[in-house]
């Protein structure tokens, strides 16, 4: 049988996420999802061994969503950091964003890492060896400094090099647990770092956070078209999922040779880079951050780049971007670091 070339069906973005019923067979390709409204009744369900189980499963919104909403009610602002592409600096930007906000002692900042297969946040924050503390009231995030807390799956792994070989459903379960169990307390800004792509983690974060409200998403890209191509897909995702886009940041744009001060475009913006993309898509362009080898080194050692090199051009660019993010979120006038 020749495979079909029909346009691939997209998932139901509003499907409630709750514990999937226990299935007797793997889900078929066009499965509406065992937790969806049409479970057991859709066209593709005919003949599926799971049909009865799915049809009998309770329908309606996820009963855990109100719990999550209650848990997150003390968080005032939530920012997602997204990019369709990997390795463009989502985690780096997330850490710098958190550090920048936390430079204001009046703000309490949380940073949640939803990249389950490749969590980088603990290393970048210098808290790799930490484990979470479980108390009667929930899981305690790891506090990097007095007003900056971090949560990542890395804290729960027995060995730090262990591979997390999980399918989507299991990852969703963990993200939900993070949102339900972690005791953030009174937090002004929660930064949510995501893995690359437009799949399970993104759908889950979106549906869990929808009722409690997300301020918006910051998209990160590098200047070259190979990367922008994936970021366009992410913009499409945000529009379909109705996540407001705060703007786009261009990372690794330009590199100044320490030898001769000649500026090279390592990742050449042959199609106009993120600035042009932002214009085309009519979303705010938040700024361009140059490639500085010291950023990578600061991340490797778990230090704050902003504290270590406050006078570098990259640092100035980043503070500029953070200020723009704050403006877009309507937090204009808050003090960020030493201004």
């Amino acid at each position: 049988m020749a495979p079909s070339l029909e346009e691939p069906t997209q998932v139901d973005l509003d499907a409630p996420l709750k514990r999937a019923p226990k299935l007797v067979a793997p889900e078929p390709e066009h499965c509406p999802g065992p937790e969806s409204q049409q479970a057991g009744t859709a066209d593709s369900c005919a003949g599926c061994p799971n049909q009865k189980i799915c049809a009998a499963a309770p329908k309606g919104p996820d009963p855990d969503i109100p719990l999550i909403t209650a848990r997150l009610s003390s968080i005032h602002h939530k920012i997602l950091v997204l990019s369709g592409k990997g390795g463009v600096g989502k985690s780096t930007f997330s850490t710098m964003l958190s550090h920048a906000f936390a430079a204001n002692p009046d703000l309490v900042v949380g940073l949640m890492d939803t990249d389950i297969c490749g969590p980088s946040i603990p290393k970048m924050m210098g808290v790799e060896e930490e484990t979470i503390h479980v108390s009667g009231e929930g899981w305690e995030p790891v506090w990097v400094q007095e007003n900056l807390g971090v949560m990542s799956v890395q804290f729960m792994l027995p060995g730090r090099d262990d591979a997390v070989i999980w399918r989507g459903a299991k990852k969703n379960g963990l993200i939900k647990k993070f949102l339900m169990e972690v005791r953030w307390g009174d937090v002004d800004v929660l930064v949510v770092d995501t893995p690359p792509g437009t799949s399970d983690e993104h759908l889950s974060v979106n549906s869990f956070l929808k009722t409690s409200g997300v301020d918006g998403a910051v998209l990160v890209s590098t200047p070259q078209e190979v990367s922008l191509l994936d970021v366009r897909k992410e913009i499409d995702f945000c529009r379909k999922a109705k996540i407001p886009i705060l703007g786009i940041v261009e990372n690794m744009s330009g590199f100044v040779c320490p030898g001769c001060k000649h500026e090279s475009q390592i990742f050449r913006a042959s199609t106009g880079g993120a600035r042009r993309l932002a214009e085309d898509e009519k979303i705010p362009f938040l700024g361009a951050v140059p490639l500085d080898p010291r950023i990578g080194m600061a991340c490797d050692f778990g230090e704050s780049f902003l504290d270590a090199y406050p006078d570098s051009p990259a640092c100035k660019a980043i503070t500029g971007v953070v200020r723009r993010v704050a403006e877009e979120m309507g937090m204009k006038g808050i003090v960020l670091g030493k201004e």
Binding site: Q10, L13, C31, R167, S199, H202, L229, D236, A241
Partner: peptide, 11 residues
């Protein structure tokens, strides 16, 4: 080329 492929695991 700009369309997002929003698929969960089984798909």
């Amino acid at each position: 080329r700009n369309d997002a492929v929003i698929w969960r695991g089984p798909k």
